[in-house]
Amino acid sequence: MRPMSQALKARSIRGLAWLLVAAALAVACGPARAQTDASEKNWPSLRETLFGTRPILDGAAMLSLEAPVRAEDAALVPVAITDLQPGRIKALTLVVDENPAPVAAVFTLSPEARVRFLETRLRVNAYSYIRAIAETEDGALYMVKRYVKASGGCSAPASKNADEALASLGELRLRQFPATDPASEEAELQLQIRHPNLTGMQMDQVTGLYRPAHFVQTIRLSADGKPLMSVEGAISLSENPSLRFKYRPGGAKALAAHVEDTEGKVFEKSWEREGKRDKDS
């Protein structure tokens, strides 16, 4: 059984000032108050750190963000950026306001790839806004956001099977989905990376020592040697990071992934592109 409080319960004790024993750890739930009221208290300083004084426009016409209203599992929250205006966006920043490392990932998109859809999985430590900020080719910023209630106040965003994630560390998989519409010039891929993505916040209860953070830092995907997409990742990406997206492959014949983690380990793999139509080749 896992802990799971209801919003009602949280509300009943909202008057209590929860001093965050684990503020330094930041694995704690936010104050009970922050869990029932959608708080933007962290955003102004985050915004300044990430984007300075640059204006950020409403992104509704540029992209959408899909995230569950209530996360079933704080360790594994699927988040999708949809309806991206293809070819116009060069970078996407995914932010989880209340996480200890709020910037979950920064995606750099090649305009030719015309990425329209992108899905990944996040750790969400507390009830929090999740934001996607898109930067267009001309340098303008557009933002969309969703408020996510992590399950039951917050079940720990912990690993499920750390032994397995470590044993096959660095294994790369690429799933190539068959096109639902054969006439479509779009293709869909999922890159899976075996990695525990350790947050550095796990204290060994016997030794009292923290296990060092160890996570996937850089992902570079290329098609026929040309950049397709790159990702700067951090500890808010779930164990075994996953990246699923739709793009225009054009005539690409080969796909390759280059992944680096914080220990300097490099994992690489390449694949022949499946489902090429005749006119592609």
């Binding site: 802990p3 799971m4 409080s5 319960k9 949280a10 004790i13 929860w18 024993v21 684990a22 750890l25 694995v27 704690a28 739930c29 009970a32 869990q35 039951g152 106040g153 917050c154 079940s155 720990a156 912990a158 690993s159 750390a162 916040m201 796990q202 204290m203 060994d204 209860q205 296990r211």
Partner: peptide
């Protein structure tokens, strides 16, 4: 190891429940 990842978090969230 499991306690390290979940212990403090569990104390907090269980108290809320």
């Amino acid at each position: 190891r499991a306690l390290g990842e979940r212990g403090e978090h569990g104390l907090q969230s269980y108290a809320e429940q």
